[in-house]
Design a protein around this nucleic acid. Structure first.
Length: 668
RNA sequence: GCCGCAAUAGCUCAGCUGGUAGAGCACGUCAUUCGUAAUGAUGGGGCCGGGGGUUCGAAUCCCUCUUGCGGCACCA
């Protein structure tokens, strides 16, 4: 006999081996009818599974959020059956559930196209309507292999071989059709319902390996209710409207063209935004004792060989051979340049930590398929810095970098951050004991941050070739994740370049280098901001803050005065004195996402006031000119400047004594 | 880089199975000075992404290159 506990606390004593369905029936027929699966001790299972030990059991209806994954997974099986019915000879591979839906990878010579979707969807609906039960069978390994082989399903055979010997080979049937699957599934295909849709078709390598065959992946989604599907499709449209490539054109920020694949032509407004980001970062960094430098764009190959970049990334570098046969590389990273600056002139331990920063433009010959708007480009600007320090300073400096990163993201409206720790990759430079030290330092940082409530994760083997790293991933307004900031502890490059400082013992000592970036790529960060705010940038970031629009030419003189006064206060103001109707001007500047529209007519000119209309609102407020300018000037103040004025310090690591900073401060 | 799709006016797009291009918006000009998301009239604008081929004839069919889009792989 076994004891089963239900969510409401009730318990029941049962024969060992009773199936979930039997138990549900014994409780009530309606429960049995409603249930599509169950959870045993928190683990999702088939309703038909037998319970053999004392456990907590919960029955799930198809409306349960936990059943959504089952609906999608079941739909994946139905998709596979539909495709194999309509396109005989197609091989099935895998079909997992992913965020927002599922996919199934097929192998077939002829391409699938979206034109095939309606037929596939109809066939799926047919299979759902047949409402055949999903039944599980456990097969002998050899039987399963032989069966799939006889069906010409070579990929499935490979999958079976990959299943560990101690695991069962499970087969799920849905009527005539069956598939190798670890389950669980709902009770029948009918439970999937009608809220499913095929989304797109794309290529994908078998087992994610670019040396293996290319499969055809059909992406789809399914929901419990049609309204949820509709809401999801609407969200996709919303994302499209926010696409920074589209907004970049509409807002006249930048463009791309054929002759410069993956490289940005920044227009005046886009460049203003870019410069706003740089000015902000300069203030934040210099406050913390960073010194800014500039290093050469083109450097001899030997430097890249010393750093190890040549050996690792040669294929992805822009190389140039000069007439005298010298080989140069356009810099893909700033670190070798910064090491040269550190090396130039003798350094003492008293100079450490030395924080060398550069808004360095780096070029990387990214694979053609990787290029994507501002998010992945071949030439970008990093807010790069290298902190040369002693081993004892690693923890404290890394935490200070962390505080800077989090505080900056907050200023831009991002507070959902995940910090990922990437450990040593298979292809790397340097001795293992150095890696041990570097990883230990960063894992201590990670632990400290986790202790403070940060979301953390570990990516085994994904560190840089010279050191482990922390990667800061932020989530934008529509839930997408972007990797931006990074902290990398490097025990290798300073030594490879022969950098040293004189320690307290008068000995030459190799410094540790912490590579760090906050925005990462300024291009990408600008793109993220545009999408995060859907183009409605906060006033301090907006490249045009105010447009002064006149209703009649009788207000022209006053308008000129308003523009001049706004500019005098450092506001980015433009005038629209064209002979157009005010409705036309309002529409145009609203589409251009101008945050503040000051409308001036006879009344305002006479009373020295303005009518103010904010982007995204139809409301109009009348205010006195000085009053409005005071308000806008305050609103347009960057958050760090506003904090400084209010005498507030940015976020600091609590409980960490800050050591005295010996580093050279820049004089400006 | 790989798979698939695409490229026509500044933008969004039409152009059926081959007969040398069309709309709306934008832009120019004129009129209108009109109080919060499109005033009217009128005009100009295209080597149909590049190259090659098939054909009497190619935006349209074929090949190839380039670029873009969606994924995959990659991302110091």
């Amino acid at each position: 006999m076994i004891f089963v506990t239900f969510p409401d606390g009730a318990t029941r004593q049962l024969e060992s081996g009773a199936s979930g369905l039997e138990i549900a029936k014994s409780i009530s027929p309606s429960l049995a009818r409603r249930s599509v699966a169950m959870s045993i001790d928190g683990r999702l299972c088939d309703l038909g599974d037998r319970i053999t030990t004392d456990s907590r059991v919960e029955f799930l209806s198809r409306e349960d959020p936990r059943a959504l994954g089952l609906i999608r997974h079941d739909a994946a099986h139905v998709l596979a059956e539909a495709v194999q019915t309509l396109f005989p000879g197609t091989q099935v591979t895998i079909g997992p559930v992913i965020e927002n839906g599922f996919y199934y990878d097929f192998y077939r010579r002829e391409p699938f196209t979206p034109q095939d979707f309606p037929a596939i969807e109809n066939k799926m609906a047919e299979i759902v309507a047949r409402d055949k039960p999903f039944t599980k069978e456990v097969w002998m390994r050899e039987k399963a292999k032989a069966w799939f082989k006889s069906q010409g399903e070579d990929f499935k055979v490979e999958l079976i071989d990959a299943i560990p010997q101690n695991e069962e080979i499970k087969i799920y049937r849905q009527g005539e059709w069956l598939d190798l699957c670890r389950g669980p599934h709902m009770t029948s295909t009918g439970k999937i319902g009608g809220a499913f849709k095929l989304i797109k078709v794309a290529g994908a390598y078998w087992r994610g390996d670019s040396t293996k065959p290319m499969l055809q992946r059909i992406y789809a989604t399914a929901f419990a209710k049609p309204e949820e599907l509709a809401a999801y499709l609407k969200q996709l449209e919303e994302a499209e409207r926010r696409d920074h490539r589209r907004l970049g054109r509409e807002m006249d920020l930048f463009h791309f063209q054929e002759e410069g694949p993956g490289t940005v032509f920044w227009h005046p407004k886009g460049w203003t935004l870019f410069q706003t980001l740089i000015s902000y970062m300069r203030r934040r960094q210099s406050e913390l004792g960073y010194i800014e430098v500039n290093t050469p764009q083109v450097l001899d190959r030997s430097l890249w060989e010393t750093s190890g970049h040549w050996q690792t990334f040669r294929e992805n570098m822009f190389i140039s051979k000069t007439e005298d046969e010298r080989v140069f590389a356009i810099k893909p990273m700033n670190c070798p340049g910064h090491v040269q600056i550190f090396k130039n002139g003798l350094k003492s331990y008293r100079d450490l930590p030395m924080k060398i920063a550069e808004f360095g433009i780096v070029h990387r010959y990214e694979p053609s398929g990787a290029i994507h708007g501002l998010m992945r480009v071949r030439a970008f600007t990093q807010d790069d810095a290298h902190i040369f320090c002693t081993q004892d300073q690693i923890l404290e400096e890394s935490l200070k970098v962390n505080d800077l990163i989090l505080s900056i993201y907050k200023d831009f409206g991002f507070d959902d951050i995940v910090i990922k720790f990437s450990t040593r990759p298979p292809k790397r430079v340097g001795a293992d004991d150095a890696w041990d030290k570097a990883e230990e330092a960063l894992s201590r940082v990670l632990k400290t941050l986790a202790g403070r409530g940060a979301k953390t994760a570990i990516n085994l083997g994904e560190g840089a070739f010279y050191g482990p790293k922390l990667e800061y991933t932020l989530r934008d307004a529509i839930g997408r994740e972007w990797q931006c900031g990074t902290t990398q502890v490097d025990f290798n490059l300073p030594g490879r370049f022969g950098a040293f400082y004189i320690g307290p013992d008068s000995e030459k000592t190799t410094p540790v280098m912490i590579h760090r970036a906050v925005f990462g790529s300024l291009e990408r960060f600008a793109g993220i901001l545009i999408e995060h705010y859907a183009g409605h940038l906060p006033l301090w970031l907006s490249p045009v803050q105010i447009v002064v629009a006149t209703i009649t030419l009788e207000a022209d003189d006053y308008a000129q005065e308003v523009i001049a006064q706004a500019r005098k206060r450092g506001l980015l103001a433009e005038g629209d004195l064209r002979n157009e109707k005010i409705t036309y001007k309002v529409r145009e500047h609203s589409l251009a996402k101008v945050p503040v529209l000051l409308v001036l007519g006879k009344k305002e000119a006479a009373s020295r006031s303005v009518s103010i209309r904010r982007l995204g609102s139809q409301a109009q407020t009348h205010m006195g000119l000085q009053e409005v300018l005071n308000m806008l000037e305050e609103e347009a103040t960057p958050p760090d400047v506003a904090r400084a004025r209010a005498g507030k310090a940015p976020v600091q690591t609590p409980g960490l004594a800050l050591s005295f900073i010996h580093s050279i401060r820049s004089n400006d």
